[in-house]
Amino acid sequence: MQPDPRTNLSNQLADTLKNRTVEPDDKREITITFRVSYAEKARLEQRCNGVVKSDYIRARLFDYPLPHPKLTIPEANRQAVYELKKIGNNLNQQTKAINEAVKIGSQPLTSNVKEYLQTIKELTALLEQTHASLSQPISDED
Rank of each mutant, 00 (worst) to 15 (best):
L17S: 10
V36K: 02
I57G: 00
K103V: 02
N99I: 01
L17W: 06
A101Q: 06
Y38A: 15
Q94F: 11
D4R: 05
Q94K: 03
H131R: 15
T7K: 07
N99W: 04
I104Y: 05
K103Y: 12
N99K: 14
F34Y: 10
N49G: 08
K85F: 13
Q46A: 15
A101R: 04
L9D: 05
T16L: 14
E128C: 06
D26L: 10
F62P: 02
I32N: 01
Q79P: 04
K96I: 10
C48M: 07
P24K: 00
L84M: 06
Y116I: 02
E45I: 02
L61G: 01
D15H: 11
Q129T: 13
Q107M: 11
I104C: 10
Q79I: 15
P74N: 01
K70M: 09
D15P: 00
Q2D: 13
R43M: 12
A42T: 03
E115D: 09
I57E: 06
A125N: 14
N99M: 15
A59K: 00
T130Q: 14
N90K: 06
N49S: 11
L17F: 08
R6F: 14
V102Y: 07
I120C: 06
A42P: 00
L127T: 14
K86W: 03
A101K: 14
G105N: 05
D25A: 14
S37L: 06
E115R: 12
K53Q: 12
Q107P: 00
R43N: 07
E83F: 08
S133W: 13
A97F: 14
A132K: 13
E40Q: 15
Q46W: 06
L17V: 04
V113G: 02
I32H: 06
V113P: 01
K53D: 07
N77S: 15
K85R: 10
A132N: 14
Y116P: 00
N8T: 07
P74T: 07
V52R: 14
L127A: 08
V81C: 08
L13P: 03
I32C: 04
L127I: 15
T130R: 12
I73H: 03
R20V: 11
S106M: 05
L109C: 09
V102M: 07
P24A: 01
D63S: 11
T95L: 04
K114G: 00
I104E: 13
S54M: 02
S10Q: 12
T7C: 03
N49Q: 06
L123E: 13
G105Q: 05
R20I: 06
E40S: 09
T95P: 03
H131Q: 15
D63Q: 08
N49I: 01
P65W: 01
T31H: 05
P24I: 01
V81R: 11
Y116G: 00
N112L: 11
T119M: 09
G50Y: 07
N19D: 09
E23C: 10
A80V: 06
R6A: 15
I57W: 03
Y56Q: 00
R58T: 14
I30R: 11
N92M: 07
L134I: 12
V102K: 05
Q46M: 12
R78Q: 15
E45G: 05
A59Y: 01
N11M: 09
Q46Y: 10
N90Q: 09
R58K: 15
N77H: 15
Y82I: 08
R60G: 03
A125S: 15
Y82Q: 10
N8H: 08
T33I: 02
S111Y: 10
E40R: 07
Y116D: 00
H68G: 04
A39E: 13
